[in-house]
């Protein structure tokens, strides 16, 4: 199995605060990797390092063996990394279909010349883009809502649409930042089915942050635990569940009976 993503001692400091401290993680082709940790552990900050929103103070990030530490966010999307956000950032005033269209590289890379003078060829290209987006809409179960404004969708559907938008960039790796937040158990089932669909049918890789332990333990192949910006554990779900360091990070020290979660 090939290594797709690798951070080497990734560190970022904001003034005196070290939000992520020398974290090295790797992800193999085809595995679902999860990042967990208590609030403020640095999970989202690590995501922002991976997607280029922040530059690491120290350390490197490699994607398929290629150094991407210095690349801007949109350049990393071109390399094949896309993401969703913890607080949904859809284009609310646009329709469901438009949200996917614009994420397709063939759509936003249209040149101005093409846009003004394009004829049949452009129309055919656009038709192909629309068809691709419809395929994704089917996968996320929104194929009957394509003319709906994104803002009018229920919360759970908005999350799905954001995942759809990330898929529409045709990525190799999708970073999902708390995809299940605010979803009910039914929607969560739908979500885990979607994640399996992404990894097995679409052959893309998934790296996710999630707080719902049941969900994480069920879906992940491997889990990395962060606490106070440092990696404290890494391994298969069952190992993580029984790791004393992890239990301590979540529940505190000294009350060994208290492990009801």
């Amino acid at each position: 199995m090939a290594q797709i993503l690798e951070t080497i001692n990734a560190t970022i400091k904001f003034g005196g605060l070290t939000a992520v401290n020398s974290v090295s993680i790797t992800q193999e082709e085809g595995e679902i990797l999860s990042l967990i940790g208590p609030n403020g552990a640095g999970k989202t900050t690590l995501f922002n390092l991976l997607t280029g929103v922040y530059r690491p103070t120290e350390g490197n990030i490699k994607f398929y063996g290629e150094e991407i530490t210095g690349l801007k966010p949109h350049e990393r999307v071109d390399k094949g990394i896309s993401r969703t956000f913890q607080n949904i950032r859809l284009f609310h005033e646009m329709t469901v279909l438009e949200n996917l269209l614009i994420a397709n590289p063939d759509c936003h890379r249209e040149s101005i010349w093409e846009a003004v003078f394009g004829g049949r060829k452009l129309r055919q290209k656009r038709q192909r883009v629309v068809e691709k987006c419809e395929g994704i809409l089917k996968a996320i179960g929104l194929e009957d809502k394509l003319e709906e404004l994104a803002t009018n969708l229920p919360y759970g559907k908005q999350r799905l649409l954001e995942i759809g938008r990330a898929l529409s960039t045709d990525p190799k790796l999708v970073l999902l930042d708390e995809p299940g937040a605010g979803m009910n158990s039914l929607e969560k089932e739908e979500l885990s089915r979607l994640i399996y669909y992404i990894t097995t049918d679409m052959k893309k890789n998934v790296l996710l942050i999630e707080h719902d332990m049941k969900f994480v333990m069920g879906i992940s192949d491997r889990i990395v635990v962060l606490d106070h910006g440092e990696k404290i554990a890494e391994g298969k779900p069952e190992d993580i569940q029984n790791n004393p360091l992890v239990i301590e990070a979540y529940l505190g020290k000294g009350i060994p009976e208290d492990d009801d979660d």
């Binding site: 966010p73 999307v77 071109d78 950032r89 859809l90 846009a115």
Partner: peptide, 21 residues
């Protein structure tokens, strides 16, 4: 067109726009 739509995504949310390339 795609160009015009991309302009609008920039207006709505630059960070989200960057996240899709």
């Amino acid at each position: 067109s795609g160009v015009g739509m991309a302009m609008q995504t920039v207006k709505i949310d630059e960070i989200a726009a960057e996240s899709i390339g």
